[in-house]
């Protein structure tokens, strides 16, 4: 089942179904035959365009990060809530005691989308913004010394690696399967 899902045909079917679902949700019409036919047609057409452009891979249909990424998002939401309070307190305090810092953190993710997820998570957490990505280093601007906590940020990076790691094993499994047949 999993092997079928990460094949090209599996990805095509999943992408088409997802696009049809989005069409149904955004239009809200379930009984107008013409609209449904047009919806199915355009979903299939978009999936075919993706296939034709050769971008129907794990970046456009990220199936293999699927179970892990939701737990990561849940954890990320809690982190965002916590650091929001810190920044809000800085805004409302009468004498703003800021001490902005520039720090560098290693991004050890393998794929580009993993690196992008890590950098976006840093930016999404208020108080830290990723300013530049040079090879393996992410340059971060932090609002205070407390927020410029390299350990905590690297912990976030490890979590991204773990989500990506499951994905990496599955990609290898796919390669072996392709070699065997």
């Amino acid at each position: 089942m999993v092997k079928f899902l990460i094949s090209i045909a599996g990805r095509f079917i999943v992408l088409s179904l997802a696009l049809m679902g989005i069409w149904l949700l955004l239009s809200g019409y379930f009984d107008k035959t013409t609209l449904l036919v047009f919806g199915i047609f355009s979903a299939l057409f978009c999936a075919w365009l993706t296939l034709h452009m050769g971008i129907l891979d794990d970046d456009s249909v990220p199936l293999s990060v699927m179970p892990g990424i939701f737990f990561y998002w849940l954890w990320l939401f809690i982190e965002i809530g916590k650091s929001n309070f810190t920044v809000a307190m800085k805004v409302w305090s009468p004498k703003m005691s800021l001490s902005p810092q520039m720090i560098r953190v290693k991004a050890r993710q393998v794929s580009d989308s993993g690196k992008a997820t890590f950098a976006n998570s840093i930016t999404l957490t208020p108080g830290t913004v990723s300013v530049d990505l040079l090879g393996e280093d992410i340059l971060i601007h932090a609002l205070t010394e407390d927020l410029a906590d390299v350990g905590a940020i690297e912990d976030m990076g490890r979590k991204v690696c773990r989500v990506e790691g499951t994905r990496h094993e599955k990609a290898q499994g796919k390669a072996e399967q392709g070699g065997g047949t």
């Binding site: 920044v87 809000a88 805004v91 800021l98 902005p100 957490t125 913004v129 601007h141 609002l143």
Partner: peptide
């Protein structure tokens, strides 16, 4: 620093 505020 204003960037961080806009993130809130």
């Amino acid at each position: 620093t204003r960037m961080h505020a806009s993130g809130v």
